[in-house]
Structure formats: structure tokens, C-alpha cells
């Protein structure tokens, strides 16, 4: 393919120079900042003043402090809970779109993706107004006479965080799963059924392995992005459900900010999340080995 593409340009400047502006931009505005962040994580701060150097103090502090450990565990827990809702629902949804509704699946995908662009902050805020103590759900239930006292666990809790994050991340998880399933002709499922596989066995031994790359991407979206979100816990989570993201954000825009500590936290979170993610992917791979 590529050779015939390049042919009309071949004389004169190579069209590959077109890679340069964006390539340079990526290097300066994405790669360089990440390196800067890494360097900073070995520095220390005194008030707002940054003190260059090389110390592992920040990392030691994060890994030994019971507070940070608890935050990290809670973050992982929330990320897992969200993923455990988002990925199966997205899988079932993609399955229905691809194999039940077939051609109308594209339309359903458009509808689902459109919700991504309906305002990130707005949707989180909307869940607060729905789940709140005097919010839509409680007031409706009370109005209907189903409950006397508002249900308090709905808001400012881990539950609220998981419900809200799931709504935010579901569309992102559907996309890779649906495109992966589009590449699986129905023949393969029928062949398995024809050879005697029941529906569940067919899913486990044929469909899941065949859409594994899509499943991995969906998993990455749900897990990594829910771990990095700090807006959701600060709007719908209570003081007991702050996540590590909130603490990192506070290190950069809070009163007692400490940039180097925040930078170190960011790297710890990314590392921990990446490891948990890889472990789970390996487990799924093992479980679906036929």
C-alpha cells in the first residue's frame, strides 16, 4: 500500500516532513512535560519555592504513610468497581449492537458516543442533583410515598462515585469493543455453535479471545481513567471517598501545595494502576484460554 501512496510525491520533498510540526509539538508539549514532572518528583519544596536536587523522600513518604496507602487502596477499589460495571455492560451492549441489531448498531453507537460530548462537568453535577439528599431521586421517592426519610447513602459516598464514573466511562469502553466485534464475522460464532458449543462456552472460547485487543482497550479506558479522575469524587464523593486524584490536584492548586510531592504521587498512581491493569489483563487471558 504505502509504496503506491508515496509515488505521486516521490520527487521533491518527502511528504514525511509533514510529520514534523505535530511531532515537534508532541515532543515539546507532551514528552518533555512528562520528563519534567519526573525530574520534579525527585525535588523538594519549601512552601511555594522549589528546591532542586535528587531525593527519594517524596516516594518514601507516599509509600510509608498510612493515609496515602489507604487513599491508594480506595482509589484502586473504586477503579475496580467501576471497571467491573463498565466493561461487562459495554461488552453486552456491543454484543447487542453487533449481533442483534446489526445495521442499526452504528446508529446506537452514535447515540452512545454523543453522550460523551454532553459536558463532562455537567454530567457529574447532574448526578449530584439526582442522587443528592434532597435530590431528584429522593424527592421523587418521597413524593410517591415509597420512603419517609431520604436515602443518605446515595450521595457523598463511594457508591455515588462509582455510579457517576460508570456513566462517564461507559461510552469510551463501548467504542473499542464494538469495533473489535465488527471484525468478527457471525460465521465464527455459528461455527462454534455448530460444533456443539453452548452460548456461554462459545462466548468464552471464541468471541472473547477474538475481541481481546478491544477488550484490553476498553479495560484500560475504564480502569486508568477512573483512577485519574478527581472531579467526580470532589463533587459527588464525601470526605470519606476522596481519591488519590484529589490529593494530587490539591498539591498543585491547593493551599498547602507541594508540587514535587504531587508529581511523585502521579507517578506512583500511574505505576500502581498500570501494574494492576496488566495483572488483570493477564488473568482474563488465562481464564479465556479454551
Amino acid at each position: 500500500m504505502a509504496s503506491s501512496l508515496a509515488k505521486p510525491f516521490r520527487r521533491g520533498t518527502s511528504p514525511r516532513v509533514a510529520l514534523l510540526p505535530a511531532g515537534g509539538f508532541y515532543a515539546l508539549v507532551f514528552a518533555l512535560p512528562v520528563v519534567a514532572l519526573l525530574v520534579l518528583s525527585f525535588w523538594t519544596a519549601n512552601g511555594f519555592k522549589l528546591i532542586p536536587g535528587f531525593t527519594l523522600d517524596n516516594y518514601v513518604k507516599i509509600l510509608t504513610s498510612p493515609l496515602y496507602r489507604a487513599l491508594m487502596l480506595r482509589t484502586i477499589g473504586v477503579a475496580f468497581a467501576t471497571t467491573a460495571i463498565v466493561v461487562p455492560v459495554a461488552f453486552a451492549l456491543a454484543y447487542c449492537m453487533r449481533f442483534v441489531f446489526e445495521r442499526r448498531g452504528q446508529m446506537i453507537l452514535q447515540i452512545i458516543l454523543l453522550s460523551l460530548f454532553s459536558g463532562y462537568l455537567v454530567r457529574i453535577y447532574a448526578w449530584r442533583t439526582i442522587l443528592g439528599k434532597q435530590g431528584l431521586l429522593n424527592s421523587t421517592l418521597q413524593w410517591l410515598g415509597l420512603i419517609d426519610q431520604p436515602l443518605e447513602f446515595l450521595i457523598y459516598s463511594n457508591t455515588a462515585v462509582v455510579i457517576t464514573l460508570s456513566g462517564l466511562l461507559l461510552p469510551l469502553a463501548v467504542l473499542p469493543l464494538y469495533s473489535a466485534m465488527l471484525n468478527v464475522p457471525r460465521d465464527f460464532l455459528e461455527a462454534a455453535r455448530d460444533l456443539g458449543a453452548g452460548k456461554a462456552y462459545c462466548l468464552r472460547t471464541v468471541l472473547v479471545p477474538m475481541v481481546m485487543p478491544g477488550l484490553r482497550t476498553a479495560f484500560a479506558f475504564a480502569f486508568l481513567l477512573s483512577a485519574g479522575d478527581f472531579v467526580t469524587p470532589s463533587l459527588v464523593g464525601g470526605t470519606q471517598s476522596l481519591l488519590i486524584g484529589n490529593v494530587i490536584a490539591d498539591q498543585f492548586r491547593g493551599i498547602g501545595s507541594n508540587w514535587p510531592l504531587g508529581a511523585a504521587m502521579a507517578f506512583v498512581v500511574v505505576a500502581v494502576m498500570l501494574c494492576s491493569f496488566l495483572a488483570v489483563v493477564a488473568l482474563i487471558g488465562r481464564a479465556t484460554r479454551w
Binding site: A36, L37, F221, L224, G245, A266, V270
Partner: peptide, 13 residues
């Protein structure tokens, strides 16, 4: 796929 939080603080740095 990098959390926006990380991009945001890295740029700030």
C-alpha cells in the same frame, strides 16, 4: 489514554 490530570500537572510544571 494518559489521565488528563497527569497531562495538566505535567504542563503546569
Amino acid at each position: 489514554i494518559v489521565p488528563l490530570l497527569v497531562i495538566g500537572i505535567a504542563l503546569a510544571v
